[in-house]
Design a protein around this nucleic acid. Structure first.
Lengths: 228, 228
DNA sequence: CCTTGTGAAGCTGTTCACAGCC
DNA sequence: GGCTGTGAACAGCTTCACAAGG
């Protein structure tokens, strides 16, 4: 039997949620947390969609992949829906991550406040530079890249963050994979190749700005035409 | 006349390039730079696609939105194509950006090596905290958020980066817009509302990890079934 | 009456496969 | 012969509009 990327499997459980939906579930979770803090206990798809910055129909379709957690004519129970989404995206447990590279970016990430409330725990910092190994950053001792395997298996870490220069990215990725890591978030401006079964997501700081620059250029160019 | 989002306008110039393509052009640029450094002066779509990590057909279609810059039976001239893409995405000039918030993340961004070679120049740093104002970070003096208007118009800045906590994000966005900024890169974990004509892109560090965590959870759950 | 959940339509993006051209 | 450029088929995502149901 081949497993297809279909919304539902034959056992009836909602599975194979579309990528675009998965990427928005954390946003909904954040919006629901904000509503809880404001003391709101029930909300409509309109309200929640507004708080999340999406179209209400899209929100309802997204939620429909998880199950039927709303009540027609009423809306959604904030706490109940929050729990269901949290469970779906694995937010009922904490996820330990290892950061490779404690330069400016790696250090900033290790101190980032936003992780802990989202179920992310920075469990280890490693670097290849001997001058950094042994130093303390955000209360954690920096270990050697050579100890990666031991650290990953010891602490049961499955997610790694690459925060090195681009030139080191592939080598670091190889080491992460060898250490047993199966999900990588890559901040280095370089393409990394990994075997099947390992997920890589890439965040490229320059590219985001370059995209904005493209639109700026277009605005500047069309001003003459549009504001005629 | 209404301006539609069509690949070509009637004047024949290639305009209205699809968003997905725009997002990849900087990647192609990077791949071309890498080829130049290796002394490669001509390449096929296969070669370039491999370096960029995309399907060759997609690469060719992307490039076709810019014009016909290849030679059938031969391939692309690396330097020529590099220039054409650079021109298209506004990379022939440098873009000045202002970073708002010089906490860990803002400081890391101000020191980020990857910007300068991609036509991005961090021209100013501002913060609301009086203890930070006047300090020097990466060779730049931190100014007051209150001076944003003067700084932006004086240095002709059109792109702003929000690197503050989520609670300050909307206020900062409002100030950026008031100062004349028309493109914003938002690192704060919060939705910001801006008027029409202002572009916002969002980079959410937690969400990227949450997406990876979701896939990790799925891998863990299906292991039992798949490895039966 | 109100709001969810969802088929169906429409749109955007990707991939195929081949005509066109060097 | 070989590689580009592109129409056409395909796949995925978004939006609409309404039936279903509290």
């Amino acid at each position: 039997m081949t497993i297809l990327r279909s919304p539902r499997l034959d056992d009836g459980t909602a599975r194979g949620i579309p990528d675009a939906t998965v990427a928005r579930l954390p946003i909904y979770l954040r919006a629901l947390n904000a509503l809880t803090e404001r003391g709101v206990s029930t909300c409509s798809s309109n309200e929640l969609a507004e708080n999340a910055g999406v179209n209400p129909a899209k929100l309802r379709k997204d939620l429909s992949y998880l199950g039927s957690y709303g009540t027609r004519g009423v809306g959604y129970d904030v706490e109940y829906l929050r729990y269901q989404i949290a469970r779906e995206i694995g937010q009922t447990q904490d996820w330990d991550v290892v950061i490779v590279g404690v330069g400016n970016l790696g250090s900033a990430l290790s101190a980032y406040q936003g992780f802990s409330t989202r179920g992310i725990r920075v469990a280890a910092l490693v670097d290849a530079d001997p001058r950094r190994i042994g130093t303390t950053i955000s209360g954690q001792t920096v270990s050697s890249l050579d100890d990666l395997g031991a650290i990953v298996s010891e602490r049961n870490i499955s997610i790694g963050i690459i925060a090195t220069p681009g030139t080191a990215a592939q080598e670091v990725a190889d080491r992460l994979v060898a250490a047993g890591i199966t999900s990588i978030l890559n901040f280095a401006p370089a393409l990394v190749q990994v075997p099947d079964g390992v997920d890589v997501r890439k965040v490229d700081l320059s590219i985001e700005l370059q995209i904005l620059a493209y639109h700026e250029q277009r605005k500047a160019g069309t001003d003459k035409v549009v504001n005629a």
